[in-house]
């Protein structure tokens, strides 16, 4: 299965085989253990639960402890369900970066960096007002719609909290993997700060990259 849980380590650049200098994000991916396989008959849907990073038994709640005991796997700190029927793995199996190969396309889900209380320019890509000539409207939200509406339309673009939300970056190219050190190198950026947990899955909207000739 081409799914894995990892931690974002940071970004750097490396040379591709053709000499191109490629910006890559380095992820410490896995090794993950298959905690449980959910099946349509027993649970109503197919999924695989992966666990990442060992946990201390002491810090777990009784219910979680019981769950790990019942499935007879070592306790994990991060648990994540990946939907789909993955017949190639069973409970207790280890999932490593070896299932990925250079050229594969993946999606990465993470939690974006917190930006605090942000204005409309940063939060909604507003254009802002004039800077000079007494405009008096610089970074404010401008019109918010109908003056006769007697209410604010739901979902209108206002300042507010930005970041710390679930973000998925689609269709990232796997540049290389390091099975010895469990590293996954992807072209481009992924959501979140360093050391943040990310989930990797095969690209749902993979398309062949237009060939440059």
């Amino acid at each position: 299965m081409k799914h894995i849980i990892g931690r974002k380590l940071g970004m750097t650049s490396i040379f591709a085989e053709n000499g191109e200098f490629v910006p890559v994000t380095v992820i410490a991916a896995g090794p993950c253990q298959v905690v449980e396989r959910k099946t349509k008959d027993a649970h109503g849907y197919d999924a695989v639960v992966l666990g990442f990073e060992d946990a201390k038994l002491k810090g777990l709640t009784k219910s979680l402890r019981g769950r790990f005991e019942k499935l007879s796997v070592a306790p994990k700190t991060v648990l994540h369900e990946f939907r789909g029927d993955h017949a190639d793995v069973k409970g207790g199996d280890l999932v490593t970066v070896s299932s990925f190969a250079a050229g594969d396309r993946v999606d990465v889900t993470g939690t974006s960096k917190g930006k605090g209380f942000a204005g409309i320019i940063k939060r909604w890509n507003g254009s802002g007002g004039g800077a000079s000539h007494g405009s008096m409207i610089h970074r404010q939200p401008a019109s918010n719609g109908d003056t006769n509406a007697a209410k604010t339309v739901k979902g209108s673009r206002r300042p507010g909290h930005l970041g710390v939300e679930r973000v998925t970056t689609l269709n990232l190219e796997v540049i290389s993997t390091d099975e010895e050190r469990n590293l996954l190198m992807l072209r481009g950026t992924i959501p979140g700060g360093k050391r943040s947990i990310v989930f990797v899955r095969p690209a749902v909207r993979a398309k062949r990259k237009a060939q440059v000739s």
């Binding site: 380590l9 940071g10 970004m11 750097t12 650049s13 490396i14 040379f15 890559v24 380095v26 410490a28 390091d178 050190r181 590293l183 190198m185």
Partner: peptide, 10 residues
């Protein structure tokens, strides 16, 4: 660190 070591061999 791990990130820098990725390209060190190059």
């Amino acid at each position: 660190d791990l990130v820098q070591s990725v390209g060190a061999a190059q």
